[in-house]
Design a protein around this nucleic acid. Structure first.
Lengths: 231, 231
DNA sequence: CATGTTTTCGATTCTAAGGCGAAAACCTCG
DNA sequence: CGAGGTTTTCGCCTTAGAATCGAAAACATG
């Protein structure tokens, strides 16, 4: 089927990322405050225009490097395309949105216009960025239940209660440490390091340290309710 | 952060859809045979260039109307963005890929260059369309397990064995009718119509007819392993 | 050393899914 | 019209994973 031969309008493509991290007990997103119109002084997602010789994945990593040390990004995945014709003023711009995750022990140096905001109490955001953040949050919450994506939120080594804090902050409700421990262990995602952490000032039994058994730091979706036979 | 001020290359955006349907006992995808170079006589996904005043969702529905009666599309969802710089020859083109589903009782009239191909034995495909089809297939298989997306593959009313056939063809292995019946019922997705179908020539007990309890024909993702409290 | 705190582990319950076989309902053919 | 064959349906049992509970372990402080 031939393409329609009308002149095509100028069209730009941008990449945006909702970079999430658990810090100070709540799930937060990296935003920067716009200095210029349109939407000056509103908060927006990091990102920028797609370059001529890069994929959207390459592009978002390149652009995020301006905001945060990309080596601290433990996970990046496509979220969705946002393409409403009036989503931004000016020339038509399509956005590919990403979800990025930073482990909770990292505290990257940030530009002065950039800060972490709790995803549940966002400031005034620019354009459709509010909806993108919520979509990222929902995607993360869903995947936390049935994938090993938690490794991207946790430090390399952690105690079960620390992990419980991360899961609780992300999901928005308190999960049981006992259950978390066994569910992740049964799935073969958790591995004891043998080390233990020193207890806090209040005493208590020292907690064993664990790590995720990351097979190559990939998010796996091992989910099938109707199982293939032979198991 | 200001945009870089270099001139931006011409960039096009296209939408593509992997429209899947179970027919003749196997999961198939709607492809059309290219008449012109590049990649003449190879099979490619329906779609086309994004119009100036439409979202990608609007666009894919408009473009699919040229191939298949869109009223038969029970479900359409974004799949992913494909953006490798060399994914198609000629000017740079970004693709937003969709997954579309047609219930198995529909047999839409097709243009002469268009046909259904089993997703597991694809003919020679154009560009990166092969990868897109496989991604759509995998997404469908995964979601079939933990959402109600099956309603988009099934007729309005069906017997349990018919549904079993659809699930088996989609997943690629045989599922148990007994279990399928109970799992879907327990989730509250299945509803008896009261009617029964007449048995085939070979006899047998007449099968009860069911329908999906589609709350507004939406795909719901009711999945949480770590449950919120109060349930 | 007693007390308090935190973590860990085992035992039990609960829910969902998978498997099996008997019963039900219908056909065709002799 | 009844015997045999076919397909569907339903109940019971097993298995697996998750949630809950409480006791025991390991440490700090006074």
């Amino acid at each position: 089927m031939p393409n329609r031969s009308t002149a095509h309008p100028q069209l730009a493509h941008e990449v945006l990322a909702a970079v999430l991290q658990v810090r100070a007990g709540s799930l937060r997103v990296l935003l920067w405050e716009r200095g210029m119109e349109p939407h000056a002084h509103r908060w927006s997602l990091p990102g920028g225009r797609l370059g001529g010789d890069e994929s959207v994945e390459d592009s978002i990593r390149r652009q995020l490097a301006e905001k945060v040390d990309v080596r601290q990004l433990a996970h990046v995945e496509q979220l969705a395309v946002f393409s409403a014709p009036d989503r931004v003023p000016g020339p038509r711009t399509i956005a590919t949105a990403f979800l990025g995750l930073v482990p909770s022990d990292n505290d990257p140096a940030l530009p002065s216009d950039t800060a972490w905001h709790p995803v549940d109490t966002l400031p005034e955001t620019a354009f459709d960025h509010h909806a993108i953040v919520l979509r990222a949050r929902d995607r993360l919450r869903a995947k936390l239940s049935y994938t090993n994506i938690g490794f991207a939120l946790a430090p390399p080594e952690f105690t079960v209660s620390a992990l419980r804090g991360i899961y609780s902050a992300t999901l928005g409700y308190r999960v049981s440490a006992t259950n978390l421990q066994r569910v992740l262990s049964r799935r073969g995602l958790l591995e004891a390091t043998g080390e233990t952490s020193r207890p806090g000032r209040a005493g208590g039994r020292p907690a064993a340290l664990y790590r995720f058994t990351c097979r190559g730091m990939q998010v796996t979706d091992p989910f099938a309710v109707f199982r293939p036979p032979s198991r």
